[in-house]
Design a protein around this nucleic acid. Sequence first.
DNA 1: CTAATATATTCCTATATGGGAATATGTCAA
DNA 2: TTGACATATTCCCATATAGGAATATATTAG
Lengths: 112, 112
Amino acid sequence: MARAATTSDAFNAVAEPWRREILNYLVLREHAVGEIVAATGLEQPSVSKHLRVLRDVGLVHARREGRQIFYRTNAAGIRPLHEWTSTFEKFWRHQLSRIKERAEAKAESEKQ
Amino acid sequence: MARAATTSDAFNAVAEPWRREILNYLVLREHAVGEIVAATGLEQPSVSKHLRVLRDVGLVHARREGRQIFYRTNAAGIRPLHEWTSTFEKFWRHQLSRIKERAEAKAESEKQ
DNA sequence: CTAATATATTCCTATATGGGAATATGTCAA
DNA sequence: TTGACATATTCCCATATAGGAATATATTAG
């Protein structure tokens, strides 16, 4: 079997660095595809394809206005990722405090 | 060009559901490969391959003890993901509060 | 209707899987 | 050393890209 489709869920969709960049760009306010093309320097078809993936997993919303289509990030779609990573937060805090403790103990022992 | 390698960074590595499952399992305490195999129901070679990917991006640490190799999650490796998702938090909060406001306004207008 | 503008889709291709099967490597026990 | 146990790696293959080029679709201006 091959890797899971990028359209299968948000985790796969944001594995692509440009898609994260696009989400960052579209979270402050909506932008037309042409603006995204200009901002990223990617080819227009590439941008459209990335937007398609993001839309399929619900990470962006689209709105047509005349010839332009405006996209904006659907921040709520990022929430599952945030929540999953949050479950690890207490562990890295714990690791950091242990490292700090060791450093302090070392400094103390080297004092005299 | 093909998709980015799963070993290119943590974002790609955790795109695979079983790898997230394994990270969850290994965060509380270290486990030998055989235990991971039993816990997940995956084939041993599959588990080894997933562990290899996780190790290449620094998401797990390994320690050999006799014939067994114990793995544990390196929670700090999840931190970049957590921080990236955190930048969206205020936006989904904002979205939610707007939805709530609308709901309340609607309820108010339907009162009489 | 026709041309121009803005996006999306299709086609093609090199590449990176991820699972299964088979095999290799490393470590310990006798 | 030899065999058993625990893991890792290799090989094969179906699949899903992601980028580039070409083309299709949608909408507006004239």
